[in-house]
Nucleic acid binder design. Structure first.
Length: 528
DNA sequence: GGTGCCGGGGA
DNA sequence: TCCCCGGCACC
């Protein structure tokens, strides 16, 4: 039960507050005394405030800004107002450049220049994230040469603040919800992290900051009006940015790590890496849906695998290598190749009987496929995959999350049955299994031909998760019961049927129970 | 209804 | 962290 204006619990005398001055700025000071006489019917208490300049002013409480009084929320900061804010986890001071009330944002130029470029640092903050008073420091630190206690607590040397992005992947220390600063280093770190965990076809993780601007080799000074959008694009919706540089082959896999952190605006520089612009509209829509479905970074598809499907009527065999499918067509449908010497079959007639398709595979699976297929490098198709009946979201869904896996025969097995049987119905599309369940296995009939989707990996119970409802909890509990959870990787403590303190000692000897039993917890004395 | 125990909440 | 208890499913 908080009211807007908190009443100070203890004596307010001595508290540091800010008071508006005649110049329009808010000046720090210390409350010297409280005037008991109420100046008006509003019951507004008057305070005598000693400014840091030595001046003594008397103001009513609604004029004061600080703890116990009005906050920063409704303030209108004049340009030049000195404020304090947290920058890179450290408190820094700065002066207000502009207060954009409509955006609830304040542009602040920091007092300290950027150590790397020597340029003034301008950041954008919400009004609530600014402070008019310097944070209190412990007495031990007040007189320290470096007055910034946060710097003292930081084990990293100062020079690390301008670290190279490729050398240091930093974990943000502060809550991004309260800091809307567009931190290029952190964005790059996030990009590199996701690149490492995502795709072998990652374009490049730049080794300097040149990637940020696309054409310029220098990290551009961010103009404040671009920050909110840039921040949003980089931290929340990087997928849309990926579309601007991803090639056609990446269309089915909106993979964030491939985009530089430049704001995906129309006014941004031309796409880097020299790739022609692609239709962002479609990709944006796809990625939008992708996000709406609750994307998880681990569920992303990471690469595209080109497969070769036999189009011979009645055959739908799919192989992973060009040579393999040609060999299949030649051997299974066209006959021995030496018969082509008489001109009946052209040398490349096989090419008319297979088509290339693209599916998304996990990197690991891809590696495994490469191990299995001792064949020439795959040819990449430019057009995006046509037959992708499974939505990208479903493709990205891990098998244990897909309830269909528990109700229907595994899709992978169906596909495998189709594509491995030579006489199966011809028209077929290749349902792409969830990336995490994608695996490769070798066909017995054609050892050199890894066959497409395969049974999903054994469905293991998910990790223990908090359920929202008690029934769900109970279902989980039952699912983990000894009858069904024999192979559970993380066996949970079952409800034991053996002796318990209650049974052994009875209710009358409750004091003899183990603590857990007394607390209605799992008995710790009679463990089964 | 008794039992085992998970989750939540207060001190 | 300790302690208690509501609530649930199972017996």
């Amino acid at each position: 039960m908080l009211v807007g204006k908190r009443i100070a619990k203890r004596s307010i005398v001595g508290s540091r507050v800010c008071v508006p001055g005649k110049d329009g700025y808010l000046h720090p000071g210390v409350i010297r005394a409280t005037k008991s006489d109420s100046p008006g019917p509003g019951d507004a208490t008057a305070y005598s405030v000693a400014l840091d300049t030595g001046e003594i002013v008397e103001l009513t409480e609604e004029k004061l800004v600080g703890c116990g009084f009005r906050g920063m929320g409704g303030l209108r900061l004049e340009p030049g107002q000195r404020v304090f804010l947290t920058h890179h986890g450290r408190e820094v001071s700065g002066s207000v450049t502009e207060h954009q009330a409509e955006k609830l944002a304040v542009i602040v130029q920091l007092a300290d220049r950027d150590q790397a470029t020597g340029r003034p640092v301008v950041v954008q903050r919400r009004v609530e994230d600014l402070r008019l008073l310097e944070s209190r420091k412990s007495a031990r630190l007040v007189d320290h040469q470096d007055r910034d206690f946060a710097k003292l607590a930081d084990p990293a040397p100062q020079s690390d603040r301008k670290r190279g992005v490729s050398h240091n992947i930093d974990v943000p220390k502060k809550d991004r919800k309260t800091s809307e600063e567009f931190d290029m280093d952190e964005c790059m770190a996030a990009m590199i992290l996701t690149s490492l965990s995502c795709s072998p076809v990652c374009r490049q993780a730049s080794d300097d900051s040149s990637v940020s601007s696309g054409t310029s080799g220098e990290k551009p000074p961010m103009s404040p009006q671009h920050w909110p959008e840039g921040l949003l694009s980089s931290s929340l919706n990087s997928s849309s940015g990926a579309s601007s540089i991803s090639t056609l082959s990446m269309r089915s896999s909106p993979s964030p790590p491939h985009n530089p952190p430049h704001p995906p605006q129309n006014t941004t520089p031309p796409p880097p890496f020299g790739t022609p612009p692609v239709d962002e509209g479609i990709d944006l829509g796809e990625s939008h849906d992708f996000f709406l479905e609750g994307r998880s970074p681990r569920k992303r598809k990471s690469s595209v695998k080109t497969l070769f499907k036999c189009t011979w009527p009645g055959c739908g065999k799919t192989l992973s290598t060009c040579s393999g499918i040609e060999r299949h067509v030649r051997s299974a449908h066209l006959g021995p190749k030496d018969s082509g010497d008489d001109g009946d079959c052209s040398d490349h007639e096989e090419e008319f009987y297979y088509t290339e398709i693209e599916v998304s595979v996990d990197t690991v699976a891809d590696t495994f496929a490469n191990m299995c297929a001792a064949s020439p490098p795959l040819r990449q198709l430019s057009p995006p995959p046509v037959h992708t009946p499974v939505h990208a979201v479903e493709m990205a869904r891990p098998p244990h999350e897909d309830h269909m896996y528990f109700q229907l025969p595994p899709t992978g097995k169906v596909v495998q049955a189709v594509i491995t049987s030579q006489g199966a119905a011809a028209p077929m599309t290749i349902p792409v299994p969830p990336a995490s369940a994608f695996s490769w296995q070798q066909s017995n009939s054609l050892p050199s031909s890894p066959v497409l989707p395969i049974s999903p990996t054994p469905i293991s119970p998910p990790f223990r998760q908090r359920s929202n409802s008690a029934s769900a909890r109970q279902q989980q509990h039952q699912a983990m019961s000894p009858k069904t959870a024999g192979s559970a990787p993380f066996p949970r403590k079952m409800r034991s049927e053996g002796k318990k303190c209650r049974k052994v000692y009875g209710m009358e000897n409750r004091d003899l129970w183990c603590t857990q039993c007394r607390w209605k917890k799992a008995c710790s004395r009679f463990l089964d």
